[in-house]
Simulated assay, not measured.
Amino acid sequence: MTNSDYLLKAAIKKLSEKLKEILVEKIEEATTIAQDTPEILKKEFDILRESIIEEASRMEKAENIQENYSTNTYQDSKIKKALNAIEGINKQIDLFNKNINNPIK
C-alpha cells in the first residue's frame, strides 16, 4: 500500500469514529430530552390548568358582580316606585287634612 492509501484509510477511519462519537452524543441528548418530555409536558399542562381555573373564577366573580348590580338596579327601581307612591299618598293625606281642618264655608 502506498502512503496515499494509508492516508485515505486513516481519514475514513477517523471520520467514521468522529461520526459515531457525534451520533452517540446526539442519541444521548435525544434520550435525555425524551425522558424529560413527559415531565415538561406535565408542568406545562398544570400551568395551563391553573390559569384556566383562575380565569373561570374571575369570570364567575365578574358575572356575580353584574348579577348583583342588575338585582340592585331592579330593587332600586322598585324602591323608587314605592317612594313615589308613598309621596303621592302623603300628598293626598295632606290634602285630606287641609280639607278636614278647613271646614267648608
Results as ranks from 00 to 15, higher is better:
M1V: 15
M1Y: 01
T2G: 13
N3T: 13
S4L: 13
S4E: 13
L7D: 10
L8T: 14
A10N: 07
A10Q: 08
A11H: 04
A11M: 03
I12V: 15
I12H: 01
K13W: 02
L15I: 14
S16I: 02
L19N: 10
K20D: 12
K20G: 03
K20S: 14
E21L: 02
E21N: 08
I22D: 15
I22V: 11
I22W: 02
K26D: 07
K26E: 11
I27K: 11
E28R: 08
E28T: 11
E29K: 05
A30R: 09
T31I: 07
T31F: 03
T31Q: 10
T32I: 10
Q35K: 14
Q35G: 08
E39I: 15
I40T: 13
D46W: 01
D46V: 01
D46G: 04
R49T: 15
E50C: 04
S51F: 01
S51C: 00
E54D: 10
E54W: 01
A56H: 04
S57P: 00
E60P: 01
K61M: 07
K61G: 03
K61N: 09
K61A: 10
E63M: 03
N64K: 06
I65S: 04
N68G: 11
Y69K: 12
T71V: 14
N72A: 09
N72F: 00
T73D: 05
Y74W: 07
Y74Q: 12
Q75T: 13
Q75G: 03
D76Q: 12
D76T: 14
K78V: 15
A82P: 01
L83Q: 08
L83A: 09
N84Y: 01
N84E: 10
A85K: 13
E87G: 12
E87C: 05
Q92N: 08
L95G: 08
K98E: 12
I100K: 03
I100V: 14
N101T: 11
N101V: 01
N102L: 06
P103V: 11
P103R: 00
P103G: 09
I104F: 03
